[in-house]
Design a binder for these strands. Structure first.
Lengths: 229, 229
DNA sequence: GTATAAACTTTGACTAATCAAAGTCAAGTA
DNA sequence: TACTTGACTTTGATTAGTCAAAGTTTATAC
């Protein structure tokens, strides 16, 4: 008889880590702590039945609370682990872009694999090697070792990269002509902006405000606009 | 009815990769292509029954040939994959030591995890980043992308690190006093040497020839002795 | 108030990987 | 030639994770 084989000192499986991470991301995106089963199943690309049974296990393990036909809500323990995985993911993405020079578009899937294989020790060394970055290449904040997300301070629009989706924080110019231009283009605090192109050499950034038509700005103008991811 | 779900275009699982890699290493160590089931089971830390059933699957998949009660022997396809995994393992070990500065003793287990998560693309970038190293930190040769091990050329004893186990290749000095010293210490081609200590600052390397008693040499002498891992 | 549809849960089956324990074989010993 | 032993194989059970399909709730429409 193998004694107490179950759940004793056992690392969470990659699948457990994945469910928790995706549930965390969904709850961060929606701003609500509770996430519906439908969204979980869709996010993880599994059938609803699979999501239900997995979520029951996670609940059993104390990672989250499951309210049948309502949704799930991470426990403190679950959130801590999920944050840690998000940290691994974003540090790895940073490494893949900054150090190895992979393309922006390819890194997500790669990091998704590696994040379950990297140890705390290697992660710490990697963080050190990268200079303890605060944001990943997408502009998302990297959780701290303690599992806390420091909301990134706003950054100038000019520093954003193509593909990013940001929200306008403020306009740092009181000059009325500029403000008038900004109002015309709907460049107002709270608006969602999608960066379509950004060629450093051309000194121009092409963007789309909400669902409006795209237009370009030079660096002089776009450094006056502060945004958050 | 799900059509042809089995074995179609499916990546080998980490477990499959692990079995093949360990079988390759065992066969390289013993110099024989055939490896007994007992050794397989011991190497992979599983019960004999597990090894038998897994090996039958691998045989089914065309990775190796299984001769009941005799042993297994990698097919060309199996050897190619195993070499590829060995390449991943050794490149990762190199990265962990060279770039992240982890300790020699910790890297094996870390690389063992990461090797199953890293993609061909990331590996290529990593190889490039590391300057296409030929040897890992243990002095083992890194297989090429094509899956071939280029026997490493001999290197000076002075360049070996503590913990390495090497074999003497040749002595590049015709001066009789030195050769006499070498003969006394059994520093002769073919002898096995274990490097016990190597402090760069002290300019001394402490070693043990075969099962003789340990002694130290300075760099002047130890650069005249060529060895292979 | 019933009917319907969408969202969710349950059930039963499957795969990969593993172990324990019982069974078999082959080689040497008496 | 029969016996014993160690190496190996078979068998039956278990766990994690998954799907398909059938069943149940809940909310909304009529």
């Amino acid at each position: 008889m193998r004694r107490a084989r179950k759940q004793i000192n056992q690392m969470p499986t990659p699948t457990v880590e994945n469910y928790l991470k995706h549930i965390l991301v969904l709850s961060l995106e929606s701003g609500s702590t509770e996430v519906s089963m439908g969204r979980v199943a869709k996010e993880l690309l599994v059938t609803p039945g699979t999501a239900t049974s997995m979520v029951k296990n996670l609940s059993q393990g104390g990672w989250l609370n499951y309210y049948p036909r309502k949704g799930v809500c991470l426990t403190r323990k679950g959130k801590k682990l999920a944050m840690n995985i998000l940290r691994r993911h974003r540090l790895l993405e940073t490494f893949l872009v900054e150090t190895l020079g992979l393309d922006w578009s390819e890194i997500h899937a790669e990091a998704e694999e590696l994040e379950h294989a990297i140890s705390e020790k290697v992660l710490e060394k990697l963080d050190q090697f990268l200079g303890r970055p605060r944001q990943d290449p997408h502009g998302h904040p990297i959780p701290t070792k303690g599992g806390v997300i420091n909301r990134p301070s706003s950054q100038a629009l000019i520093n954003c990269k193509a593909g990013m989706k940001v929200r306008i924080d403020s306009i740092v110019d009181q000059e009325s002509n500029f403000l008038k231009f900004a109002r015309e283009k709907r460049l107002l605090p709270g608006q969602e902006v999608r960066i379509l192109q950004h060629e450093k050499e051309a000194d121009a950034i092409t963007l789309q405000v909400g669902k409006g038509s795209p237009f370009s700005m030079g660096s002089r103008s776009s450094e006056k606009i502060l945004v958050r991811v």
